[in-house]
Amino acid sequence: MTGQTDPLVAELARKLVETLGLDLKPEAVDPAAPLIGAGLGIDSIDTLELVVLIERDYGVKIDNRAAGVEAFASLNALAAFLRQRRPASPA
């Protein structure tokens, strides 16, 4: 299983595993699977940790439940969410 062909998805998978101390390889995170409440064992504290990481590294705020549900539906969804809302980068 991979399907992490999108470099942003691969980058997010790496940060996810590193930040949350998950006991698996970043490539093993299924980009289409739900991030929360599924096999990864991610809970509300992890979610807040990711919220801080995303605001810090990508400048995108997730400050309401609806945005959280959309952003954390899967790694693919998170990448799409960031692309849509990210402040225009100089490059």
């Binding site: 504290i45 940790e49 801080v52 605001e55 810090r56």
Partner: peptide, 8 residues
């Protein structure tokens, strides 16, 4: 600058 830290 007091913006981010780890909730964990």
């Amino acid at each position: 600058g007091d913006q981010f830290s780890s909730p964990m």
